[in-house]
Simulated assay, not measured.
Amino acid sequence: MRTLRRTWRLRPARIALAVLAVIALLAVAGGALAPHDPLGQHPGDMLRGPSGAHPLGTDYLGRDVLSRLLAGTGSSIAGALEAVGVAMLLGIVPGIASVWLGRTVEWTAQRAADTLMIMPFTIFAIAVVGALGNGLHQAMIALGVLFAPLYFRVTRAAALGLAQAQYVEAAELMGASRWWILRTHVWGKILPTVAVTTAQAVGQALLVVASLTFLGLGVQPPAPTWGGMLASDLGYLAQQPWAPLVPGAAIMITVGALNVLADAVRDSGAAAGDLRETGAAPPPVPVAPPNGPAADSTGPRAGSDDARVPDRDSHARTGAATGTASSQEVEQRVTTG
């Protein structure tokens, strides 16, 4: 919670959250806010430019672009969230289990993560959709499986550092169960790292979802999606060269806000970790002695041991001068005698 409060104090984080709140509202109520039917075709209004009736123009079938953009927000965002949810389930639990359940579980989980990391996203998703059928859920499950190694490695790295913490070892010596330790001491420390990874993963998943729908995978036309709108606009660039900018800008703004939020959460957690590690405290304020003004910072304090001890360099200089004078007196006596 403290990391979230520090994140909220950052202005970029507040701006990113405001943008994401608008995107979430459009994802939930975009179809209701659409001024026209997103599937309604009007051949007489094909490829029209922006106007009062159609603020963003119409596409090659006369459908309102703004209505399709609002209605497609829900499908695009829901697909990205579904993929990230599957990735969290398949990555966080094995990541923590590989640290606490012994060498066998650790070796098996690491080999599975290494295998999934070498698979390309698009080809694996096409193979899964071809085997299970062309649908949004099938494509998002495949995407979530490929995102799982990201959560596995991040969670495992954080859990490895906490497994050797002194308070965790003390809890084990006192007889605390593993579930209690994970719930009380480990999960709260891992949560900020998971939050940063989630913000970045949703942005990446949104790009992959747009790529899949661009290829016609996941959501079937004529259902509107951001990637599907990009694919349909590419065939009519001569008539409307600005048309791909509309769904492209929606994708860019959403992914940019997620990345800004992830950076803000990471910076807040790093700042808190630096304060805890260094034990930073405010500099001490000089206090005046009870019987006099504050001592000069460049010299010894009055009444201190340093004030009573003579300077060694002054002793050396005085001794050298005295020795030189004594030798000159002896030479004069010898000469006169």
Rank of each mutant, 00 (worst) to 15 (best):
A97R: 04
P94S: 08
L25F: 09
N291D: 15
A288Y: 12
F214K: 07
T197L: 05
I96V: 15
T278K: 07
G319T: 07
S211K: 06
L81S: 05
H185G: 03
A112M: 09
L39W: 13
R14K: 12
I118N: 04
G40Y: 12
L143A: 06
A165W: 05
H42I: 02
P224D: 09
G203H: 03
G323N: 09
G95K: 03
E329R: 15
Y236T: 13
T254I: 13
P282L: 10
I118Q: 06
T73R: 00
A21R: 08
L230D: 03
V202T: 09
V186S: 07
L173D: 05
T122E: 09
H36G: 02
S314W: 12
V154C: 00
D233F: 12
I190Y: 01
G203K: 00
L101Q: 11
R153P: 00
A53N: 14
L69T: 05
D311R: 08
S98W: 03
L101G: 02
V22P: 03
L17P: 00
R312L: 12
R153K: 05
V105K: 06
A316I: 11
R5A: 08
L56S: 01
R266E: 13
V208R: 02
R63D: 03
T335E: 10
L217N: 10
G161N: 12
P244Q: 08
G216D: 08
L146Y: 07
S76E: 01
H137M: 06
M88Y: 02
S297G: 08
R103N: 04
R14A: 07
G62S: 05
Q200M: 09
A13H: 09
H36E: 10
T197A: 11
A21T: 13
Q220M: 12
V246K: 03
K189S: 07
L89Y: 01
V154A: 04
